[in-house]
Simulated scan of single mutants.
Amino acid sequence: MSEKTLFITGASSGIGAATARQAVQNGWTVGLFARSEDKLKALVDELGDKATALPGDVTDFKSVKDAVDKFADQVGGIDAVYANAGTGLSAPGTEAGDPDEWEQMIKVNVMGVLWTVKAAMPHLKKRKGHLLLTGSAAGRRHIAGSVYGASKWFVHGYGGNLSEEMREFGGRCTVIAPGMVDTPFFDEPKPDKLQPEDIADAVMHALKADSRCAVNEIFLMPTQ
């Protein structure tokens, strides 16, 4: 059996980078997809020959598909894909919200997930593979006027639907749903909140689960 392979979006920092580090430590070969070519190159320099930089834009289907196909060709197939890329909003609520900002967020948080899944599915089907999506505590409760939260409700609903679809060929889908995480997503550090490594732990737990066990969702919250 060849080494397991994992393709990660939003891989240049935060949760994506932490997951790449843990995956490599656990013997996985990783394909790292994000817009920041410089950050990806630095991460590959750190991780070595088990990592490949695949710069691209998650809001462009061709960009995602080309990267997924390139990684699959390079490593001989894909065992798992982590649709992790996401973005938030600076103006909260509906009345005060910025429609242009909403549109960009939907492109990343909704269409970016769809493009990643669409590009990945043929490869995952070949290996009874595993799909992971970054959801959020904001996608499990109602927050006054939150358009961001609604985008994560989509991820949770779609993830459940994917679990049913992938069951047909022996595949699995897991939604990783964290509360507040100390990542570049926020302007100010949040040292008392979850760390990216906590989310990476959850990803690895889902990936390591026996094939008889479908881990449909992991919900993590900071204790503080």
Rank of each mutant, 00 (worst) to 15 (best):
T52H: 02
A17T: 01
I78H: 01
H123V: 09
S63Y: 08
V181S: 07
T9I: 05
N109I: 08
P184V: 11
K152E: 11
H130C: 08
Q195M: 10
G139V: 08
T87Y: 07
T174K: 00
G129F: 02
A177Y: 00
F186W: 15
K190N: 09
S13H: 08
K41Q: 15
S136H: 05
W115M: 10
W102L: 08
G97T: 12
D187W: 03
S211M: 12
D38R: 11
A20K: 02
V64D: 07
A209W: 09
R140C: 10
K65E: 15
L43M: 13
P122G: 07
E164I: 14
S13D: 14
F61M: 13
V64F: 09
R172W: 02
P222R: 06
L114K: 12
D98A: 03
P196S: 06
A96P: 05
D182Y: 10
W28V: 01
G88A: 14
N161F: 11
Q224E: 12
R172K: 14
A18R: 00
K190M: 12
E101F: 07
D201W: 01
D201F: 02
V58T: 13
I15G: 00
K39N: 14
T5E: 01
E165N: 07
T9V: 06
A119S: 14
E3A: 13
K128Y: 08
L124D: 00
C213M: 12
R35H: 11
F33A: 05
D100E: 15
L89W: 06
G135S: 13
D45M: 10
G86T: 03
V75Y: 03
M105E: 08
D49C: 04
K193L: 08
D192H: 08
L89D: 04
Y148I: 11
T52K: 04
K118F: 04
G16P: 04
Q104R: 06
V58E: 09
I78L: 11
K50F: 03
T59F: 09
D210L: 06
K70L: 10
I106T: 15
G31W: 00
L131C: 10
D45A: 15
Q195L: 07
K152D: 12
M204W: 01
V147E: 00
A214S: 11
S163F: 10
L114F: 12
G139N: 06
K128I: 08
E197L: 04
P222H: 06
L54C: 06
T116A: 11
S36L: 00
V215K: 04
E197K: 02
K128E: 14
S163L: 10
A120V: 11
W28A: 01
V181E: 05
A150T: 15
A83M: 07
R21P: 05
F154P: 00
K190W: 03
P178F: 03
R140T: 09
A202M: 08
K4L: 14
A120G: 07
W153E: 07
H123A: 05
Q74K: 15
Y148K: 03
L114D: 04
K118W: 10
P92A: 12
Y148A: 04
D182W: 09
K70R: 15
T116V: 11
A200K: 00
E95T: 14
P222S: 12
S36E: 07
I8R: 00
E217D: 13
V110H: 06
E101I: 02
R35I: 14
I199Y: 01
L124Y: 05
H130W: 09
K118S: 12
P191M: 11
K193D: 11
D60E: 15
G159D: 03
A11Y: 01
N109M: 10
Y148F: 13
A150H: 08
E165S: 09
L220H: 03
